[in-house]
Amino acid sequence: MAYRVLIVDDSPAMRSFVRRVMELSGFDLAVCFEAGDGGEALKVLNSEWVDAILTDINMPGMDGEELLRRLSADEVLRAIPAIVISTDATANRMDRLATLGARGYITKPFVPEDLRAVLERTLGDPNA
């Protein structure tokens, strides 16, 4: 299966890193959209379908939590699995994100293999 993915993070370096982990994990990326914050992400989703969203939380403009809130409020967009990649590991934040429908969560810093495990748990094993 060829995946269409959206990576949302205000750090271009982190977007590259996440993309590389996805590719090395065996996910065949047909398209990889990138957005610097939640607002840019919603603009992409206005016109493009994606199979998965990987998003940071702390971003200028619209943050990841607000993005998840908007996705979960939309009948169509709420079906897209969203994985959160964030430095914030506080219990408060994680509880809220689970309520907002995040299907996977990983805390920075992480080893690439741990992100692969989250991707496989959320999206399935691409090599199966």
């Binding site: 430095t87 914030d88 506080t90 408060n92 805390t107």
Partner: peptide, 24 residues
Amino acid sequence: EVVCELANMICGSVLSRVESTATF
């Protein structure tokens, strides 16, 4: 860009260790 992300990650990690309940 990488150094900025390094700073971001160190900062987030520090705050997660000293703040377990409040949001930063």
